[in-house]
């Protein structure tokens, strides 16, 4: 079913990671990804991987769902790895046939690249699995505040993002419903020539567009009726607060960063 998509889905739970300040989470996510990409040897990358696994466990989201989010990009990881195996040259030649030469260095490099990409997905999934879309955009707006001084309308940007995210599940549900309704009238979406298939989409697309416009208008009216007038002077129901948890997260991240740098230098 359409609504069983998992990528970027929020899992309402009550874990340590869920309770972190979303602003921190965003910064830490970026920080961790950077750390993963500057880990140059087995020890430092292993450490980052261990940290990512720790986050995965602390988040309380079933590991199955992390695996699910990795699955779609597995092909991409494999291709990158294979390219690396064939293109990197080094000193320890392992296999040679025809024009292909595979070096130990190439294999190591490929493994590194693959692990880094997988870590990237795990870490960013941890962010979206544990942070509701609204607090995510709240945090982004908050983090972008310095730019608004330059005259960029960061509030509108964040509001558009919130609304877009808010309506994704609604649209999926609506598509599902309209599809069922047209199927009930014998709409055939699977067979036929390309032209017929394109035509078969119209009975779904048109009602979907019509209702999206209707929704947008209704939402705009509803917002205006409640005196929405942009970001100026607007206060929040939920003010973002940093807590001791964020301190713990921050300190452990710093320790991780120092260790990674240390390991990079030592080995």
């Amino acid at each position: 079913m359409l609504r069983d998509v998992t990528f970027g889905q929020y899992f309402p739970m009550d874990s340590f990671i869920h309770k972190l300040d979303p602003r921190f989470k965003i910064l830490l996510t970026f920080g961790l990804i950077i750390v993963a990409f500057v880990s140059f040897n087995f020890y430092s990358l292993g450490l980052v991987a261990a940290f990512a696994v720790l986050i995965m466990i602390l988040s309380g989201v079933p590991v199955k769902f992390y695996l699910k989010s990795i699955k779609p990009i597995l092909i991409f990881v494999l291709i990158t790895a294979v390219l690396n195996i064939f293109y990197i040259s080094g000193e320890t030649l392992l296999v040679e046939f025809w024009i292909v030469k595979i070096y130990l260095e190439g294999i190591i490099r490929a493994a590194f690249v693959a692990v880094r990409i997988v870590l990237l997905i795990i870490i960013s999934s941890a962010l979206t699995y544990t942070t509701s879309p609204t607090s995510l955009t709240d945090a982004i707006e908050n983090l972008l505040k310095p730019i608004s001084k330059l005259g960029v309308d960061t509030h509108s940007f964040a509001m558009m993002m919130t609304i877009a995210l808010r309506f994704i599940p609604t649209l999926i549900e609506e598509t599902d419903k309209i599809m069922s309704a047209q199927k009930a009238r014998g709409a055939d979406m699977e067979t036929g020539s390309l032209m017929q298939k394109i035509k078969a989409v119209l009975p779904i697309l048109i009602p979907l567009l019509v209702s999206s416009f209707r929704r947008a208008r209704e939402l705009a009216d509803a917002m205006e009726c409640r005196c929405y007038h942009g970001g100026e002077g607007r206060t929040r129901l939920k003010v973002l607060h940093a807590s001791y948890r964020d301190a713990i997260a921050l300190i452990s991240s710093f320790i991780l960063l120092s260790l990674v740098i240390l390991l990079n230098i030592l080995f």
Partner: peptide
């Protein structure tokens, strides 16, 4: 589906032609 005709809730949202 032609023999068992189903009219959904709020069917007006499926009009398209």
């Amino acid at each position: 589906r032609f023999k068992v005709g189903l009219v959904f809730q709020y069917p007006e949202y499926q009009l398209f032609d």
